[in-house]
């Protein structure tokens, strides 16, 4: 039998990333590679440094030291903080996608759903209203929302729909790397399931690489290929999701896993 051929080039390579606000506050000694199509979960309690790390990765927070190397669609690898700001910001609205925990932070609440989805298209140069509108409508369908709500305002939507709208808004430019901060955070359980399914099918359809911060281990199990467990600014354990959850090695991970009802 033939050995599986692995993708050699990581989409994102994080090397000794550190951003500290105090002793063990923030994140430090972070090292990992993310490969195309992989979903990486970052779990840990509040204050463990998950969000600091995610902010470093999303270009909003320059690390004290270390490198965050992104390999772009044409195969050029570069530290996102070493490129000029114009290019970094362009990447953030084209090849990166950032999904906020609270959809109100990721959406423009005072413009229609269609304009929210279309914005990133217009930001990368689309100037044909008809095309933009068609694409926006298609994406609304993709995230399982009725097309006839294209001209409705985000505040008219439920929380789950707002989150799906945010995902459509981010995915419309076909990003390669999506960063999600507690995407199912404030949602009802039934809505969560729907969203999990949606995220998972989009990930495989679009071959997205995803980094997802969550404190919900059940969500992590269902969506993530790999996990990083953070405690007090450091990654204390990392590995395959089911290995970390079913056979945790570090005392803190064991505590974390044994503390939830259905991991």
């Amino acid at each position: 039998m033939k050995k599986p051929i692995l993708e050699e080039n990581a989409v994102l390579s994080v090397q000794s990333c550190q951003k500290l606000y105090g002793i063990n506050r923030g994140c430090q000694d972070i090292n990992f590679d993310l490969y195309p199509g992989e979903v990486l979960g970052i779990v840990g309690e509040s204050g463990s440094g998950k969000s600091t790390l995610l902010n470093c990765l999303s270009g909003n927070n320059q690390p004290d030291h270390g490198a965050i190397i992104y390999r772009d669609s044409v195969g050029m690898a570069q530290d996102i903080y070493e490129m000029n700001e114009a290019r970094r910001r362009l990447l953030m609205r084209s090849e990166f996608g950032i999904v906020k925990q609270n959809p109100k932070d990721g959406l423009r609440m005072r413009v229609s759903a269609g304009a929210n989805i279309g914005e990133r298209l217009m930001a990368v140069g689309d100037r044909h209203y008809g095309d933009i509108r068609t694409k926006a409508g298609d994406w609304l369908t993709q995230v399982e929302m009725p097309k006839d709500r294209l001209d409705d305002m985000p505040f008219e939507f439920s929380g789950g729909m707002q989150q799906r709208l945010q995902i459509a808004r981010v995915l419309v430019t076909r990003p390669r790397l999506v960063l999600m901060d507690e995407p199912t955070g404030g949602l009802d359980v039934s809505v969560q399931a729907k969203l999990l399914d949606l995220i998972r099918s989009l990930v495989s359809e679009l071959n997205l690489s995803v980094i997802m911060v969550t404190h919900d281990l059940a969500v992590a199990r269902l969506l993530c290929d790999r996990l990083l467990v953070m405690q007090q600014s450091r990654v204390i354990e990392q590995g395959l999701t089911d290995q970390v959850l079913d056979d945790p090695q570090h005392p803190y991970t064991q505590l974390l896993v044994s503390s939830v009802l259905t991991p």
């Binding site: 039998m1 033939k2 050995k3 599986p4 692995l6 993708e7 490969y35 992989e38 290929d225 790999r226 590995g239 395959l240 290995q243």
Partner: peptide, 20 residues
């Protein structure tokens, strides 16, 4: 055991285990 080499699941990458 593959045709041309072996992969040790004890030491290989998570990426390899997912591929396996």
């Amino acid at each position: 055991h593959f045709d041309d080499e072996n992969v040790d699941m004890a030491t290989c990458s998570a990426q390899m285990i997912n591929a396996l």
